[in-house]
Computed example of a mutant assay.
Amino acid sequence: MTLQLGIEGRTALVFGAGGGLGGAIASALAAEGAKVVAADINAEAAAKTADAIRDSGGTALPLEWDLADLDAIDGKVSHIEAELGGIDILVNNTGGPPPTPASGQPVSLWTGNFQSMVMSVIAITDRVLPGMRERKWGRIVTSTSSGVVAPIPNLGVSNSLRLALVGWSKTLAREVGRDGVTCNIVLPGRIATPRISFLDEQKARREGRSVEEVSAESTASIPVGRYGRPSEYGDVVAFLASERASYLTGSVIRVDGGFIPSI
C-alpha cells in the first residue's frame, strides 16, 4: 500500500541507484508512481534496479553514469528529458571515498573526490534546476553522511567534502524556495548496506578484532538496537520528495535510529 505522496508521473533521477541506499530510494519513489531513472557508475547494477522496478509494475530507465565526468552531464540530462520528460526529483547520492585520516593524504585524493562527490552534485543540480523553477515544482534531496554532524574517525575525506554539500544545500534552499523547489539533506546512520559492511570490515582489520565484535559494538550504541533497513531510508527520502513535504526545506534529516549523539 502506498502513502499517496502526490508524485505519480513525476520524473525522478536517483544516483547510486545500483547500491543499497540508492536502490531503496529508487524503489520507494517508483512505488509511489514516479518514473525513475536509475543512474549508477555500474551499468549492470543500474539495470538490476530498473528491472526490479519494472517487474513490480513501475517505470524505470537504467543509465550508466560516472559522476566524475562533468562533461557528460548535459548529454545525460538531455537524454532523460527526451525519454521521460523534465526532471522533477533529483536525488544526489554519491559514493564515498576510502577510509583515511584527514592528514597526510595526496592532493589528488582530495581533488578527485571533490569532483565526483561535490562538484558533480552542484553541476547536475544547476542543469536541472531551471526546468524545476519554470514548472514551479522540484525536489532536491542530497544524501550525505552522519559524519557531517559528528565526524567519523578515519573518514577524514568524507567528513570534509560531504560537509560542503550541507552548506551548499542550505544556501540553495533560500534561493529557490519561492519557485516551489525544496532542498534537503538526509543523513544515514548505520544502515545495513554493503558500504557499512565494508567499513565494519576495515575497522575490524585495523583494530585486530572480528567483524562480529565491531558490529555488535556499533549496534549497542544505537538506541533502537539494530542497524537500519535500506527501505526505511528510502521511505524518508520518498517523503521529502513528495507533494506533502512542500513546506520542508533547508533541513538536515537524520535517519539513524538515534545513533548520532549530538543535538
Rank of each mutant, 00 (worst) to 15 (best):
V237L: 04
L21K: 03
W168M: 06
G86S: 15
A50L: 02
G20D: 00
K136F: 09
G57E: 05
A241C: 15
V77R: 13
T171S: 15
G18K: 09
P130V: 05
T94M: 15
G234E: 05
V141H: 07
R133A: 03
A102L: 15
D51M: 14
G257C: 04
T171R: 10
A173W: 06
A238D: 06
L90P: 00
G20Q: 04
T182C: 07
G19F: 03
G6L: 06
E64F: 05
G138D: 01
L199V: 11
T94V: 15
V224Q: 13
S197W: 12
A102I: 13
R226M: 09
Q202V: 05
M1L: 14
I53D: 00
I25S: 03
G147P: 07
S221Q: 15
T125Y: 02
I7E: 03
P106C: 10
I191D: 00
G23T: 03
H79M: 14
A34K: 08
G58E: 00
G18C: 04
A34D: 02
A192H: 14
A164K: 08
A102N: 08
S169K: 11
K48L: 11
Y247Q: 11
V255T: 07
S169L: 00
D200F: 04
S218K: 10
Q105N: 12
G104P: 04
G208H: 11
L29N: 03
P98Q: 12
T11K: 09
G18S: 05
V186D: 01
V181N: 06
R206A: 11
G180C: 06
R133C: 02
A102D: 03
G208Y: 10
N184A: 07
D66I: 07
A150M: 11
K136P: 01
E134G: 10
T171G: 13
L13G: 00
L172C: 04
G228E: 00
I222G: 06
G57Q: 11
L84A: 01
S251E: 14
M119H: 13
F239L: 12
V36P: 02
V77Q: 10
S108L: 11
I253G: 09
I122A: 14
T111A: 07
A173F: 04
L248D: 01
I87S: 05
I41Y: 10
V166L: 09
Y233W: 13
K136C: 02
S146Q: 14
Q115P: 01
S146K: 12
A28N: 02
E207D: 13
L240K: 10
R10C: 06
M132H: 07
M117Y: 13
A47F: 05
A31Y: 02
E8R: 14
A24Y: 03
Q105P: 01
R135K: 13
T111S: 12
Q4Y: 10
W65L: 15
L67C: 09
S116F: 00
S197I: 07
A123H: 14
A50D: 01
T171A: 13
E32C: 02
Y233P: 00
A43I: 01
T249Y: 05
S103C: 07
I25L: 02
S160W: 12
A34R: 14
I222R: 13
V236W: 05
G234A: 08
G16K: 09
S221D: 12
E32K: 11
E64D: 07
V107W: 12
V118L: 07
G250L: 02
